[in-house]
Design a protein around this nucleic acid. Structure first.
Length: 816
DNA sequence: TTAGGGTTAG
């Protein structure tokens, strides 16, 4: 054997040196002994040659060698060549070889059909099968049906094949039956699949596996798990395929115990070195968050394939350890394993997670250089998502528009990208654009992406329209859609609707609880927040870090210092949640707002982590409210050293100086902001009139009805002054004359929006305003008076909270 | 010589 193999190698070496078929032909003739397979044990020798075929290139060499030796006249040899070409993905040569065979046997036809299936050419496989049937040259056999069943495109085609199977009497074959079971499951006819399964006289493990996969394909994962348990009860051995199919089910059902039991089974039955099994174990442990276990399985693997590397990379990515994921990606490359689309998809998520713009661009470049990758929708969507999460929306938009094909997830990714970056108008525009595309139908993800945009804009009418649409398709009771609706109603000032919706949807996860608590929080109903929190605990729902953020923020806005501190402590002591910088920020806000500035400052100094801009920002805002210029200076110095590009800190500090008349300080702040090329964020307010949102900028006179608006504004100010309103000029930043100061205050954008709403909406109707910055104290006071004289309920949502004005007072009780 | 059921994703 060994000698013959060496001869085959020698021939191949010889062939490598030869430039043409004629040269090798001369060598063949020159050889005194002739070519081994011409004389002796022909079959063994050819098989040895075939065994050397590790690529399509070598197959071609061997093929040429066989042509010159005249061996390809044998159907056996030609059919083997078809198989070899197909195994190496060279369909063109498989087809060419098939075409040269004059009289084909069942092996030849079966091999060609399998070659088409293997290379994903489904319609060609069907045509080939039809040709075989119509030619009548040879009848199909039990080997013909499994591959063709795998690729049939409709249930009708599948049933036709089923009839043929029955007619030809191949239903006894377990391979054929498993393929039929799978075919029926694929088209959603799981009852027909089970009928076939039940009537099988003999079943092997693949028959059970086909049924298990059938249940999974038809969203009946519980039944799949039942089947596995039945197999174990009947002592039917679970094979690697069973294990690889059922482990994702355990992860999906959150059934960790079953997952562990399967792992024990794997070890006991010597399956722990099966690549498919290990890959599925890595994925299962990753989904349960047991990275250490996933890592151990990966480390013990004797052979790792691309899926193994992808799985460990994705395990770290899913558990938010992007750095380790990238380390494994490098390891994968060192081991000579080429990345595929799934590797790159995970990497894009890692890069986004790490906020690593530089590597994001590098990754995008890598994908662009392999142009075929961008043709893949999943790849394109992952890149759009990456740029959106990195906050580079221009790139996200560009990649989206350059994608040759887009699906609903592409649109959802773009819409949520805009929403999450605060670009609500862009999100709703993208949604409208999507609506005009006939080829996509909105799904759950679409509503979850667009509703936050309407919430952000305070566009109640638009949000209600979406509510109507989701009711029609029975999605309003979906936890995620329902939560977005609660958030939307909460943010648009309809707390009652939010609450009734909350009690309609499933409340087993923290998600809807967080939404309803936060809705009450922004309206200043902190006592209700705490009651809802108690109810949440009674219902056995575990709070998460978001729940505590909402609670702390609610306590902070209403001055419930003790309750806030209690929340901060139980979060750590009772629920083991480590405070994030956002929690620390809320605590500083809570103490600072209550005037406990020193306590807030000491709290920052006692922090176990480095305070960031949100923490110092909260202290600075509190200093503004309580007029502590000295501490404010310290906080603003810290802020500017952390984030010198944020104009808000300069504005706030200059505001503090202005408040105490330190105009030098104001100028210093202004010039240092200008020196860095920073411009004050222009304030704007929007109001929904009819189905349209009108936007007003401070001092803006470009609105078509600006004359009437200013006229109304002056009339209102005159009236409220008579009622006792006195402008508070401390909210004016500039060092100007008194009447000029009044002019500056009176042109704040929310006042323009309120004046416009008063002249454009029916009397008694509620006015809802959205402001991008915080409402100033003077506008707050002015609006209170306006709500009294106009007999209107005015709801102003600013960047921080809700102000609900009614009959001359505000829901926030003037707690600033 | 040819075949079925399987793991990772936006």
């Amino acid at each position: 054997m060994q000698i013959i193999t060496c001869q085959a190698r020698t021939w191949l070496r010889l062939w490598r040196r030869c430039r043409s078929i004629s040269t090798i032909s001369n060598h063949l003739q020159a050889s005194s002994n002739g070519f081994e397979f011409e004389h002796k044990d022909k079959k063994v020798d050819i098989e040895n040659l075939f065994r050397l075929c590790h690529s399509s290139h070598v197959v071609k060499r061997v093929h040429a060698l066989l042509v010159v030796s005249g061996t390809t006249h044998s159907i056996y040899v030609s059919t083997r060549l078809i198989n070899l070409y197909a195994r190496h993905g060279d369909l063109a040569f498989a087809r060419k070889t098939f075409g040269h065979i004059r009289s084909k046997d069942a092996y030849t036809w079966n091999s060609m059909i399998a070659a088409y299936v293997r290379t994903g050419c489904c319609s060609e496989a069907s045509s080939c099968f039809n040709e075989l049937i119509s030619s009548g040259e040879v009848p199909p056999d039990n080997y013909t049906f499994p591959p063709i069943l795998k690729v049939c495109e409709s249930l009708i085609d599948g049933k036709k094949i089923h009839c043929r199977v029955l007619k030809d009497g191949f239903i006894w074959d377990v391979f054929v039956s498993a393929s039929l079971i799978h075919m029926y499951s694929r088209f959603g006819f799981v009852a027909d699949a089970q009928n076939l399964f039940d009537n099988m006289p003999f079943r092997d493990s693949a028959s059970w596996n086909a049924m298990i996969s059938g249940f999974c394909l038809n969203d009946n994962v519980e039944k799949a798990l039942d089947f596995v348990n039945e197999m174990r009860l009947k002592s039917i051995r679970l094979d690697p395929v069973t294990v690889a199919s059922i482990l994702p089910v355990c992860a999906f059902l959150g059934d960790f115990l079953s997952g562990i039991m399967i792992h024990v089974y794997v070890i006991k039955h010597g399956l722990e070195h099966e690549v498919f099994v290990c890959n599925a174990l890595i994925n299962m442990y990753a989904k349960f968050g047991y990275l250490q276990h996933a890592q151990e399985v990966f480390d013990k693997m004797l052979v790792k394939d691309r899926v193994s590397w992808n799985s460990i990379i994705s395990a770290y990515e899913q558990n938010e350890n992007g750095k380790s994921a990238i380390r494994y990606f490098r390891g994968m490359q060192c081991h000579g394993q080429q990345p595929d689309i799934l590797t790159l998809v995970s990497l894009a998520a890692c890069v986004a997670q790490l906020g690593d713009c530089q590597n994001g661009r590098l990754l995008h470049g890598f994908i662009i250089r392999r142009a075929y990758l961008m043709g893949n929708i999943i790849m394109g969507n992952a890149v759009v998502d990456m740029y959106a999460k990195l906050g580079i929306l221009d790139y996200a938009r560009r990649v989206f528009h350059e994608m040759p094909r887009k699906d609903i997830i592409s649109w959802n990714t773009l819409i949520s990208g805009y929403s999450q970056n605060g670009l609500a108008s862009e999100a709703t525009e993208a949604f409208s654009e999507m609506e005009s595309c006939v080829e996509v139908t909105p799904n759950q993800g679409t509503w979850v992406s667009v509703l936050p945009a309407y919430s952000h804009l305070g566009a109640l009418q638009q949000g209600m329209k979406i509510h109507g649409r989701v009711i029609k398709i029975s999605l309003h009771l979906d936890t995620y859609v329902g939560t977005c609706l609660i958030d939307m109603y909460g943010k648009c000032g309809r707390l009652d609707t939010a609450l009734s919706l909350f009690y309609e949807i499933p409340r087993t996860s923290s998600v809807p609880w967080n939404a309803i608590i936060s809705s009450h929080g922004i309206h200043g109903h902190s006592e209700t927040c705490l009651k809802l929190f108690e109810e949440m605990l009674q219902d056995g729902v575990n709070p998460d870090h978001i729940t505590f953020l909402s609670l702390l923020s609610a306590c902070s806005h209403t001055g419930l210092v003790d309750k806030g501190q209690w929340c901060f402590h139980i979060m750590q002591d009772k629920f083991g949640i480590k405070p994030s910088l956002r929690h620390y920020g809320c605590m500083v806000d809570l103490l600072g707002r209550a005037g406990l500035l020193e306590k807030a400052y000491n709290f920052i100094n006692d922090m176990t982590v480095q305070p960031d801009s949100s923490v110092w920002g909260a202290l600075l805002a509190a200093c503004r409210t309580h007029g502590n210029v000295e501490l404010a200076k310290h906080a603003s110095d810290q802020l500017i050293s952390i984030d010198s590009e944020n104009v808000g800190y300069y504005v706030l500090m200059s505001n503090i100086y202005a408040n105490v008349g330190k105009w030098e300080g104001v100028n210093e702040m202004r010039s240092s902001a200008l020196g860095r090329g920073l411009k004050k964020t222009p304030g704007w307010s929007s109001v929904e009139v009819g189905n349209k949102n009108d936007v007003f900028y401070t001092g803006n006179k470009s609105h078509p009805e600006h004359e009437q608006i200013y006229h109304k504004l002056h009339a209102l100010t005159d009236k409220v002054k008579r009622l006792g309103y006195v402008p508070d000029y401390s909210f004016v930043l500039q060092d100007v004359e008194e009447d000029e100061k009044e002019h500056i205050l009176s042109s704040h954008s929310e006042r323009l929006a309120i004046a416009f709403a008063l002249i454009s909406t029916p009397s008694k109707s509620v006015i809802r305003i959205f402001k991008n910055l915080r409402v100033c104290g003077d506008c707050h006071n002015w609006t209170k008076f306006v709500s009294k004289i106009s007999e209107r309920e005015i709801i102003v949502r600013d960047s921080n909270r809700f102000h609900h004005f009614k009959d001359g007072s505000c829901s926030c009780g003037d707690y600033w």
